[in-house]
Design a binder for these strands. Structure first.
Lengths: 213, 213, 213, 213
DNA sequence: CATGAATGAGCTTTCATTCAT
DNA sequence: CATGAATGAAAGCTCATTCAT
């Protein structure tokens, strides 16, 4: 009698197909240029069908963004599960973000776009709550590492929430500016090195005792 | 009899009026939603008049962005002219960016928006070069401070260009995430404190000798 | 269950409706003044619907022109199928063109208009090829008649292709100048008589032996 | 005290300059694409100045057309003044038209365009009367030749006005179709030969006695 | 559920024309 | 007379959304 479940599974699968197609389209054309037609062509469904799964274009493309957040969260948690001391963990988290940047640069490209006022106004609160929640979870991974560092006496006494927010902003900011450089046709920096250096600098700022660099 | 000069002045003033109106509109509605009509209504000029001063909507709104960069650059340079040691200078630059954030949050709101692929493609190269140049100047202020710190033996031996880029990304990233919080209707953090802490952390990472916090 | 065929038929019919409406509008207002809105109002469809069937205004109005060419070709061929000697055939072809002139004066009104440089540049090559082809078919009817006259020894030895082109230009030119007269508010000539006389004159020029008029 | 006359002369000269500029623009861009700005730039006068000499864009461009008619009339009259018998005169008139076609193809290109309903409605009656009159004068040249041929007993008894109209339509029609061929990117015929052959054919149709070709 | 034709509001952009200087 | 900045109506075209099938 798993008919209902199967139907539900199929529905979820179809929804996922649409999000995947939307993601590809979004990365190729950008939010303003991407159309629902583009997505429906890509996923080979009728345009009307898209609207059975997403109430508006905004909701559809926001789902893409949420999927991006999921990806980052996955990477962060994977790293957080490793048995490392907080200082080393920070290095690894920088690399995790870099992997995310490489794989999902499209999310970063469209993130600022999608989080704009007029778009946010058009999505239901559940969706923005979900974004909030997931962004919170991501920062929590960072926070926990900082907290552990403090607890172990490795790090100086700082507000872990605040440092998490700094590291988060730092990552986002570096990714954003690199994307800008691409759009401005400026040679891209070595983002990996930049992220690693940035986290290292902050880590050095956090460490209680330091002998030279 | 200065007629030509007066006309030129009036033209510049009118151009400025349009940019100012565009800025307000942009911050309220975002690039995709903001229309040239909105701007012409705000500035109380006919729509066609806007097109006498700006070839396209993209060019108009990009001019807003450039003005924002100018503002930040002014603030940075003002600070850079103070007679301070590099470490203290970093604190002041954090505050300068915060002042910029408070005054010109609109620019930050739309920055990532405006630097998007499809918009950049529609503006003449002169404009994107100008952006490049001005962004470069801004980072140069940061770079010079770092360099001075290294030269004076205060800071450890790092790549000043890279650190400048990190500080720039850090600032942008924190500003961006705060703007996101606003759009997500999440209580805003104390951005001032966040920026100051962030720069402090990095400064601590840069300083050669540290005793405790 | 011919659902697909029915849909296809309906689509063709709708397309035809649009072309018909465009034809009326075109004849009333001329290409530059006629708007897509005019057509959509006339055919009582939304403007966007027009663009589902025609990519541009140019393509739409060019289709009107092609339909006109089809009409003339039909009339020519109908006449060409009659069992007449070439000399008499020429008379009949003059009358066929006259019938076309009376029925489809709108096409003639806009023909030169539509074939203008800047319009031609905006239509896809398929369309201009189609026009070429159909205009060629029309002249071929004339050419064949001349050829037959030469072969039968009725007509002097001329280049049939050239004479076809002359007769074609003659017809178009007379029609055009009559349309001009209308626009200049000058009393229209008897176009029927004019066309018949013109063809007669050429026929007399072509005939090998002549006794008096 | 020729001040007034000089002023008048200067005014006429300036008017002529504008018409010349308009002619160039018209030939390069076509009526729909040509703008008053284009003309004012070309003639290096302010846009407003154009409107001191021409009430509307239509009036301006129609003046270009009239100038074209003048040119043809000049050529026709020059030829008509030669001491030739009517039959030879027809050959020469064909060549005159060909010269006009070569030199002033732009007038022919835009003629159909300009003579359209919606444009004619916007020009003052004086202007359309002028066109009428000049077109009449041109046909009169042809008519007189035919009349002379009839009077001399060379030509059969036809209505000279009608034949003039036929020759006129023939010329216009051939020119028009050749212009169309250009726009359709079809290799141009030898227009000279075509015009000469056409007039020859008609001449042969007009001549009372013919022995072979 | 799925479809895709139809909708029409809304966008950017152009340009003939005016008028204060 | 000459200017050219300002106007604003109007155009072509797009696309998110709906709904009858």
């Amino acid at each position: 009698m798993g008919v209902i479940e199967r139907k539900e599974r199929e529905k979820q699968k179809r929804r996922q197909d649409i999000v995947d197609a939307a993601c590809e389209v979004l990365s190729e054309k950008g939010f303003a240029t991407a159309t629902v037609d583009d997505v429906s062509n890509r996923v080979e469904l009728a345009k009307g069908t898209i609207y059975l799964y997403f109430k508006t274009k905004e909701e559809l493309f926001m789902s893409v963004f949420i999927k991006g957040l999921d990806n980052l969260l996955d990477k962060y948690r994977e790293t957080a599960n490793l048995d490392l001391n907080p200082a080393d963990m920070l290095d690894r988290l920088a690399l995790s973000f870099y992997r995310y940047y490489k794989e999902d640069i499209n999310y970063i490209k469209t993130a600022a776009y999608l989080l704009h006022e007029d778009i946010m106004e058009k999505i239901p609160p559940e969706l923005s709550n979900e974004i909030n929640h997931k962004a919170g979870m991501t920062q929590k991974v960072l926070r926990d590492v900082i907290q552990k560092g403090i607890d172990q006496g490795d790090f100086i006494d700082v507000d872990p929430r605040q440092v998490a927010r700094i590291l988060w902003g730092l990552s986002i900011g570096i990714a954003q500016t690199m994307v800008m450089r691409i759009h401005l046709n400026v040679p891209e920096d070595d983002v990996r090195e930049l992220l690693v250096s940035a986290f290292n600098l902050v880590k050095r700022g956090l460490l209680r005792n330091q002998s030279g660099i």
